[in-house]
């Protein structure tokens, strides 16, 4: 029994690190720019396809090392342009939040079916970053799960630290709290918006590459990813990176233990119930600011 609980706990940790990786970009961009990106899952898939194109048909030298190296400028530019071209023109309207949601929903439709049109409707698999397993006591783990765990945790903590301890981070926070005020004290608001969007896109692209090599690139999977990320960020408190981190691991654990004890079929209802109860008690999520 004890061993079983350890194993399920490990599963929960794996789930949690996967979720943290999925959600970090969304929470960042929402926290700072208040723009809700519905095409989030499609950018996650873009990461998967980016890696696939480079690795399989093109066969770049250096494998994943070059993929990550090229992904940094690629996703930064894509995100930056997206904000400049599509999102920022909408900011001047009163109901721009709703417009952004609509626009990104359209964009996600366009991107998802664009993938299908280009790459076909079937799923694609990527070669693993590292293969092989490690045995810790009685529990056997995939090496790549450990890599994902470390990367997602350190990524989240790193961002949290940057936001709270560097000048740039504080400028970003200032924009998040009061855009007009931030501009008055000389913070380039528009640039911060675009840069945040770009960095968030970069993070989701990275997440996409890492998780697609663990599972698959699924052209229809982006909605699921979006919804998962949405639930996690809302649960943790939209805009709170620490909250998202907690939320990811709490929901990951919940999924593992409910799945183990009651059956996988009850996981979704349990997750949503927890979300609704939490929001009823704390309307802005676990760590959301009033």
């Amino acid at each position: 029994m004890f061993l079983e609980i350890i194993e399920v706990f490990t599963s929960g940790l794996i789930n949690g690190s996967v979720y943290a990786l999925m959600a970090v970009g969304l929470t960042l961009v929402y926290g700072v720019t208040k723009a809700f990106n519905f095409a989030y899952g499609s950018f996650y898939n873009l990461g998967g396809y980016f890696a696939w194109v480079l690795l399989i048909p093109l066969g770049v030298i250096g494998g994943y090392f070059s993929v990550f190296f090229m992904a940094i400028p690629f996703f930064f530019i894509v995100g930056y342009l997206l904000e400049k071209v599509l999102i920022s023109p909408l900011r001047k309207y009163d109901d721009w939040e709703m417009k952004v949601m609509m626009l990104t929903l359209g964009l996600s439709l366009f991107m998802d079916f664009g993938y299908q049109a280009i790459f076909g409707p079937r799923i694609k698999s990527l070669p693993g970053i590292i293969e092989g397993t490690v045995q810790v006591g009685e529990v056997v783990l995939f090496q790549q799960d450990i890599v994902i765990f470390i990367l997602s945790l350190s990524g989240m903590l790193c961002f949290w630290w940057i936001l709270n301890n560097t000048r740039t981070g504080m400028a970003v926070q200032a924009v998040a709290q009061n855009p007009a005020g931030a501009q008055i004290v000389g913070i380039p608001k528009d640039f911060i918006f675009a840069a945040t969007f770009a960095i968030s896109t970069m993070m989701v692209g990275f997440g996409g590459i890492l998780l697609c090599q663990k599972n698959f690139v699924d052209p229809m999977g982006s909605t699921d990813i979006m919804i998962k990320a949405w639930v996690i960020t809302a649960f943790g408190g939209m805009g709170s990176i620490r909250g998202s981190l907690y939320a990811a691991f709490i929901l990951g654990m919940l999924e593992a233990f409910v799945g183990w004890y009651f059956g996988m079929i009850h996981v979704q209802i349990a997750t949503l119930t927890l979300l609704l109860v939490t929001l009823a008690i704390r309307p802005r999520g676990l760590m959301g600011r009033e």
């Binding site: 079983e4 490990t10 599963s11 999924e255 059956g263």
Partner: peptide, 20 residues
């Protein structure tokens, strides 16, 4: 006997039981 929804990628909890 377990009925599962589509979309599961983490089988740890079920495999734990199977191993027992």
């Amino acid at each position: 006997r377990e009925t599962v929804p589509y979309g599961i990628n983490e089988w740890g909890p079920i495999l734990t039981k199977i191993r027992r």
